[in-house]
């Protein structure tokens, strides 16, 4: 390793530190504020040392004094719904998007560019614009307020994103990978599964991560399409906002609780997330 001038380390260190303050300061602040009592929330100057008050969390979990809180999630049906909808929606969007992204990257099928553009344009539609029609459509086919209906809409909102991101990653894999496999007598599907997919697993992990975030936090569609039986955590928690003014501690506590599954999900996929692509098969890279 060559030695480098000191400044080559100084600049990145300074930039990363400044960004860390910007990025993590508010995270720290929401964590602190979620355990502040009403009187400690609005003091001047803001207190760093205070007696923790877990009323917000009690309300979120519906225990103690806040047993009957409207926003309580506890181990409610909403928690189950949220998990089912996000996991199924993420899985479907990632699998379908990976397949479609591969096809769009490798095959010149008629209307390919139109298909890709169409896939992207589905993400451009503001939820408010199509909600009215989903509402009508869902009640006609009996999908209103069902977990299945929400899984469908969750898959849909992420499918365009998944297809595009995966196409980008497949574009980065040289076509020679499949060519060599086929010369050696393997099918294209075998090459796709055994050679190409492992190369883009960082991309698949990133895609699944994004899909899960969007699915888990999705509010607009769920709030209209799944109002009672199939409601999800964000919908349930939204009742903490507005009814009796802004319940700051409840909102912050809810934010802290809701982030946990996403962090767990990222922890589970972490090994794949930043896996560099290896072009060892070819001994060369790029397209």
């Amino acid at each position: 390793m060559r030695s480098r001038p000191r400044s080559a380390f100084l600049l990145p260190a300074v930039v990363l530190t400044v960004y860390m303050v910007y990025s993590l300061g508010p995270v720290l602040w929401i964590a602190l504020s979620s355990i502040k009592g009403r009187q400690d929330l609005f003091t001047l100057p803001p207190r760093l040392i205070f007696t923790p008050d877990f009323a917000g969390y009690q309300a979120v979990f519906g225990v103690g004094a806040a047993r009957d809180s409207a926003a309580a999630i506890g181990l409610s049906q909403a928690l189950v719904n949220s998990i089912v909808v996000s996991v199924a929606g993420t899985l479907l969007a990632t699998v379908l998007g990976t397949l479609a992204g591969y096809a769009a990257s490798r095959f010149r099928f008629p209307g390919r560019d139109d298909f890709m553009f169409f896939a992207l344009s589905t993400r451009m539609i503001p939820p408010t614009a199509v909600l009215v029609f989903y509402h009508v459509m869902y009640s006609r086919v009996g999908l209103s307020d069902t977990v299945g209906g929400l899984v469908l809409v969750t898959t849909f909102i992420n499918l365009g994103l998944a297809t595009w991101i995966m196409k980008g990653f497949f574009d980065g894999v040289p076509v020679e990978v499949e060519a060599i496999a086929r010369i050696n007598g393997y099918s294209r599907f075998w090459a796709f599964r055994r050679l190409v997919l492992p190369m883009v697993r960082g991309g698949i992990a990133a895609t699944a991560g994004f899909c899960f975030i969007f699915a888990w936090n999705e509010y607009s569609f769920a709030s209209i399409l799944a109002t009672t039986k199939a409601n999800t955590l964000p919908v349930r928690l939204s009742s903490a906002m507005g009814a009796t003014g802004i319940e700051w501690t409840q909102i912050f506590a809810a934010g802290m609780v809701l982030i946990v599954p996403v962090v767990v999900f990222f922890y589970l996929i972490r090994r794949h997330l930043l896996m560099g692509m290896t072009f060892g098969v070819l001994g060369k890279g790029g397209t």
């Binding site: 860390m20 993590l24 509010y219 964000p234 809810a254 934010g255």
Partner: peptide, 25 residues
């Protein structure tokens, strides 16, 4: 890797909660 993971946190928060957090700050 830890720094990287921590940097992902803001994106994981519920958007509406993020709005209220910044309004508060």
């Amino acid at each position: 890797d830890i720094v990287f993971t921590l940097f992902m946190l803001p994106m994981m928060l519920c958007p509406i909660v993020v709005g209220f957090l910044w309004r508060y700050m």
